[in-house]
Amino acid sequence: MSVNLSKGQKISLDKEAGGALSQVTMGLGWDSVKSKGFLGFGSKSADIDLDASCLLFDEANKPVDTVWFRQLKSRDGSVVHSGDNRTGAGDGDDEQVTVNLQQVPANVKSIVFTVNSFTGQSFAQVQNAYCRLLNAKDGKEVARFDLSVQGSHSAQIMAKLYRHNGEWKMHAIGENGTGRTFDELLPQVAQHL
């Protein structure tokens, strides 16, 4: 059974999954808000390109690697991005980042997931946005975090996976930010490391 996370909540991945997790997938999904046409006819929605990024940090909180639409795999191969979805069209996850927890290098202390509106629209134009963590082996949802709080922000720090006493934990951050790419969020991300 999946846990619906609230902002700031922390969970043990193994405990929530009912056993040791070796691979997890962070899924990101969204839809664009439909605008009403003349007299309610011809409603349409603008394409919104949200981008999931995954930032790997070491013990000194320095960036080690980044996985995003311009680099779909970490240099060590432990993190893989599904590719860029530029519209949010369709059901289910629009972008996914899979992390092989057993292959993440020992010097990586935390992995932060962010989402940015590459096209620059604010989240006021986004609906049904979420991130969810899946057991990559069986596809079962472990945790879900609703990102649909609409507003003037164009980015969000979604969640952090981190090592604590030999196990992986997850922290639902859910903090709004601004920026078309993850690098504009780095000063804000640093406050959560």
Rank of each mutant, 00 (worst) to 15 (best):
M1S: 13
M1Y: 08
S2Q: 11
L5C: 08
S6R: 12
S6L: 07
K7P: 00
K7A: 12
K7I: 01
S12G: 07
S12L: 03
L13Y: 06
D14A: 12
E16K: 12
A20V: 14
L21I: 08
S22C: 09
T25L: 02
T25Y: 02
T25N: 05
M26A: 11
G27F: 02
G29S: 15
V33S: 09
K34H: 10
K34L: 09
S35P: 01
S35K: 15
G37P: 00
F38C: 06
G40L: 03
G40H: 01
G40Y: 06
G42C: 02
G42W: 11
S43W: 13
D47S: 14
I48F: 02
I48S: 06
I48Q: 08
D49S: 03
L50Q: 06
D51S: 10
A52S: 12
L55V: 12
L56S: 05
F57E: 04
E59A: 09
A60H: 13
N61H: 13
V64S: 04
D65P: 08
V67M: 04
W68K: 01
R70M: 10
R70C: 00
R70E: 13
Q71S: 13
L72P: 10
S74Q: 05
S74R: 02
S74D: 07
V79P: 12
V80S: 09
V80D: 07
G83N: 12
D84N: 10
R86T: 14
R86S: 13
T87N: 12
A89C: 00
A89K: 15
G90N: 14
G90S: 14
G90M: 11
G92N: 10
V97Y: 03
T98H: 08
T98N: 08
V99K: 02
L101D: 06
Q102M: 14
Q103G: 00
V104L: 04
V104K: 01
A106H: 11
K109Q: 15
F113K: 01
T114R: 06
T114C: 11
V115W: 08
N116C: 15
N116I: 02
S117M: 06
S117A: 15
F118A: 01
F118Y: 15
T119N: 15
G120C: 06
Q121N: 14
A124Q: 15
Q125K: 15
Q125L: 11
Q125I: 00
V126G: 03
V126W: 10
V126R: 09
N128Y: 15
Y130S: 09
Y130R: 11
A136K: 10
G139S: 07
K140R: 14
V142P: 09
V142N: 03
V142D: 06
V142K: 02
R144W: 08
L147N: 04
L147C: 05
S148M: 05
V149F: 00
V149T: 14
Q150K: 13
G151V: 04
H153A: 08
H153I: 01
S154D: 13
S154K: 10
A155C: 04
M158A: 10
M158E: 11
K160Y: 01
R163W: 08
H164Y: 05
N165F: 05
G166W: 02
G166C: 04
E167G: 01
W168Y: 10
W168P: 07
A172T: 02
I173P: 00
I173C: 00
E175L: 09
T181N: 11
T181K: 06
T181C: 00
T181Y: 08
F182A: 08
D183Y: 14
D183S: 11
L185H: 06
L185D: 10
L185R: 07
P187D: 11
Q188C: 05
A190Q: 15
L193N: 14
L193Q: 14
